[in-house]
Design a protein around this nucleic acid. Sequence first.
DNA 1: TCCATTTGACCCAC
DNA 2: GTGGGTCAAATGGA
Length: 311
Amino acid sequence: MRNLNDNLHAMERRLMEELVQGKSSAIILQTLLHNPFKDEGSISREELAMKILRSFNNSISIASSCASVVPSAQISGAVDCGGGGGSTSSGGRMKKTAKDRRGCYKRKRPLDSWTKVSPTIEDGGAWRKYGQKQILNSKYPRCYYRCTHKSQGCKAKKQVQKMKEDPLYQTTYFNHHTCTGTQAALPQHIVELDQIESNLLSFQGSKNIHYPKPANASSLKQEFENVGTQTVGIPYAKSSANTSSWLGNVGPGPSRCKQVFSPGIPVPGDDLEEEVSGLYSCASMDRFHGLDMEVDQLGDIDFDEMYNGNM
DNA sequence: TCCATTTGACCCAC
DNA sequence: GTGGGTCAAATGGA
């Protein structure tokens, strides 16, 4: 069981490395396309495209390997309960007994949910705490909040859980605010994957790329400084939401996968600091449900150089 | 008095 | 049967 976990972690790491590699190549290619006369070194667009393609192929390959390694019972929304699982026969499905599944239960998330990690539980929204629960295998209790304007029919909710000893809180949001009071204080900017994919299509044409700047860059910077953690992505499209959204390339995968961005992603002309961290979360992925990945490796990407042509 | 938080109990998906 | 999510009474602060 431990070997299985080790393998999974190794695969997860390799998957992330491939995705990050592909992403950085895509960013360079994007810069090239955006600025055709810029010298990006000896690497050609064709080579970059090949690198991106290779990264995708490798990622798919690794993901497929993961899927074949992980017993189905663990993938379908259950968490690893640490050694109680029992082995699987090759190709066969070992059904866990009810007793073995103790502590592994994880309720399916509704479609309209997303997760972010930040050092604070504050997000500018108006929340009212309605419960707190000690969670199995978790040192810290989970807190339940709903929108203060529930009386207006707002169904927005969030769950906050402190992560280990780190001063970080994982906040899971459910439903968007429908009330007027907190509309301007959406916790973060999200997009649906199908929208990202459509933007990726337009990305191929390269002419439609644009970098939306926040309506109020200084306030977003302030918010970023308050949050202190930044989720990174390629800011090249705008969502249809009221607020500007900064999209990241999530890559191929099932729909309904959402990526969360805190404001303040570096854009041309923006001098935000680049303490880069991130969380990718899928509200409902068929095989990798609940696979939240910290992407500290993205800190290697120097956006300032990328956008200002110092690479 | 109103509103937010706490907390034990209950419901229900697994 | 168990754990996670929610309810609602009790409590406290403004």
